[in-house]
């Protein structure tokens, strides 16, 4: 029995009346707005245009929307061909299809050439877990992070999603954006400025560093609230650019707290935890714990069931952190 349960959750001051963002709507609006400003922006879909991130763009600029059907290898090669012709393509589809099916096209045609191809991987993590393990994506960060030249964004709320689209177009090389389907609690206030490559301290603390991204940022903030009730002052960091990762921020925080826990809706093999560990082990070694999915294909269930089952609810994150602290 965990020492944390929903009853001892405290109110998060920032989110006393929380807003929940649908990432796909922010993407859709961002792409349409970007397309308005930049005539070179194209949208490429693989039978993925309706209801997905490009719907608004397609309405406004049908001549710049290219549908390539259920054929992602071709679509990714076409994206590269457009980019080397001076266009700025955004290609969006279900994450496993747009990242894994055409992985070699991503590697050879997009990353090796360092072209401005922007890949939107829809439905990361347990977004559509009811569809089963083929559609549940728990290893994309590990796979994509190994590619040279590729920038990886993993936004946590609407404002980050919106600005990540503009940032991706500005970055000369390729960008992979992980898009979560489950509505995310708004973390950022109005006026927030997304900076590629920069992490951010969402909650300063001195006892332990909790590093998170995407869907797990809100849960980690809630876990930190629960820990504060127990007298533990946790620092919470949002890493919305997984590559290149903000080494400076991770080093600074870990040197202060001497303990780091990473939290991700992703495998503990090669994901956020791996990326943070790669920094710390070389530059400022401290003990770490990685909270995530333990190298397995997930069972089928609805989102909240799976988050709880795999230990990613705020209560379970707080419990895992407490267990880790007891080992010191």
């Amino acid at each position: 029995m965990s020492e944390f349960n929903k009853n001892n959750k405290v109110n998060n001051a920032v989110n006393s009346s929380p807003v929940y963002d649908d990432a796909r709507k922010f993407f859709a609006n961002a792409l349409a707005d970007l397309g308005e400003k930049n005539r070179d922006v194209l949208y490429i879909s693989c039978d993925s245009s309706l209801g997905a991130s490009g719907a608004e763009f397609n309405k406004k600029f049908p001549e710049r929307h290219f549908e390539f059907g259920i054929a992602e290898q071709n679509a990714m090669g076409e994206a590269a061909g457009f980019a080397i012709s001076g266009k700025i393509p955004f290609i969006a589809a279900y994450l496993p299809f747009v990242a894994y099916r055409c992985f070699e096209q991503v590697r050879d045609d997009v990353c090796k050439t360092n072209l401005n191809v922007n890949i939107m991987g829809n439905n990361c993590g347990f977004s559509v877990s009811a569809l089963g393990a083929t559609h549940t994506v728990l290893e994309d960060v590990a796979v994509m992070r190994a590619l040279p030249n590729l920038t990886i964004f993993s936004p946590c709320d609407g404002p980050e999603y919106y600005q990540a689209v503009f940032a991706a177009a500005q970055i000369k090389g390729p960008v992979f954006i992980r898009v979560h389907r489950v509505k995310s609690r708004r973390i950022h206030k109005e006026g927030f400025k997304f900076e590629p490559g920069k992490g951010e301290i969402l909650r300063p603390g001195t006892d332990i560093t909790l590093v998170s991204c995407s869907s797990m940022v809100a849960n980690t903030l809630d876990a930190a609230d629960m820990l504060s009730v127990k007298g533990i002052d946790a620092e919470v960091i949002n890493i919305s650019t997984l590559k290149p990762i903000d080494r400076q921020l991770i080093n600074q925080s870990s040197q202060k707290t001497k303990k780091v826990v990473t939290v991700e809706e992703h495998s503990v093999v090669g994901g956020l935890g791996g990326a943070v560990a790669e920094v710390l082990i070389c530059e400022s070694p401290v003990r770490m714990k990685m909270i995530g999915i333990n190298d397995l294909f997930a069972v089928v269930g609805d989102y909240s069931q799976l988050i709880d089952y795999y230990g990613l609810s705020p209560e379970k994150i707080a419990g895992s952190v407490m267990d880790f602290l007891k080992t010191f």
């Binding site: 290219f66 290898q73 071709n74 076409e78 061909g81 080397i84 001076g86 266009k87 096209q105």
Partner: peptide, 13 residues
């Protein structure tokens, strides 16, 4: 198998 997709996009461009 990589050239024809890329070439086709150049043609569309």
């Amino acid at each position: 198998g990589h050239g024809l997709p890329v070439g086709h996009a150049m043609a569309l461009a």
